[in-house]
């Protein structure tokens, strides 16, 4: 594949290292930590206690977890070379539009495909634990995505580059400098392709990763729909959600 104009192999290598470093430094859990915790599961009693919480309490708890995770994504973005050279309007647009996608990619790390569980609040949980949210379709869609993404077996380097490429999507509405974002994304995609070639991965692997984008988009939309509905039914609780969560997912 030809390199984008004005881009050397050395630059591609520099981007790869920078994105990987950013990803590793801003991941909430190290791979060793996740391996160690993989079999720490919620007991049936603990699961039931989550299931019997009110929707308001469970939503609040999830909003707090998502907000924490978003802060790490913001840090990840800041450390991607070139991101901070974009104007702040574009930085915010990219983060608002792409942080959920990045969270969904990152979630794969905290998913155990053997027992279909996710790390949530310190232990691994099944989809049933989230019953009180009243969003079974959303929860199941997230678990299904994690299951299908875990089959791709992305390395940390691939995950880092894929996350950066998704975050740097030039088609987000209201961007000021589309070209600048596009150039950055091209470089990251090039780095991802080189990384896959280097590992001897099949060409299908990138196609499989990209094929998850529409599913991720539908999950993001579903989350917004559920949040809007929740806001209608429980406006007081929605008002107490973390300000960053409201900022990112507000209309």
């Amino acid at each position: 594949n030809p390199l984008p104009e004005g881009c050397s192999l050395l630059e591609i290598e520099r981007i790869t290292q920078s994105v990987l470093k950013s990803h590793m430094e801003t991941s909430q859990h190290s791979t060793e930590e996740l391996k160690r915790m993989a079999w720490t599961l919620y007991s049936p009693e603990e699961t039931r206690s989550y299931q019997t919480k009110s929707a308001e309490v469970m939503w609040q708890q999830c909003a707090i977890h998502i907000t924490n995770a978003i802060q790490y994504v913001v840090e990840f973005a800041k450390r991607i070379s070139g991101f901070m050279d974009l104007c702040q309007n574009d930085q915010i647009i990219l983060l608002k539009a792409g942080c959920m996608d990045v969270l969904l990619i990152r979630m794969c790390r905290a998913y155990n495909p053997i027992n279909n569980t996710f790390l949530f609040d310190g232990k691994f949980a099944t989809a049933h634990l989230f019953k009180a949210l009243g969003c079974d379709d959303l929860v199941n869609a997230v678990f299904d995505l994690a299951k299908s993404m875990s089959r791709i077996q992305m390395t940390e380097e691939e995950m880092a580059l894929f996350s950066a490429a998704v975050l740097l999507s030039p088609d987000r509405p209201w961007l000021t400098d589309v070209q600048k974002v596009q150039k950055l994304q091209e470089k990251v995609y090039m780095a991802l392709q080189r990384c896959l070639q280097k590992e001897g991965a099949s060409e299908e692997k990138l196609a499989k990763m990209v094929s998850k984008l529409p599913i991720m988009k539908s999950i993001c939309n579903l989350h917004i729909d559920k949040l809007e509905f929740f806001r209608l039914v429980h406006p007081e609780t929605a008002y107490t959600f973390p300000p960053l969560y409201r900022e990112v997912f507000g209309s």
Binding site: Q71, V74, E75, G250
Partner: peptide, 20 residues
């Protein structure tokens, strides 16, 4: 700017993962 006050702050802060 007011609408994205926290994002602005986070983008301007020189935070490290330990601070998060």
């Amino acid at each position: 700017k007011e609408k994205h006050k926290i994002l602005h702050q986070l983008l301007q802060n020189s935070t490290s993962p330990v601070d998060l």
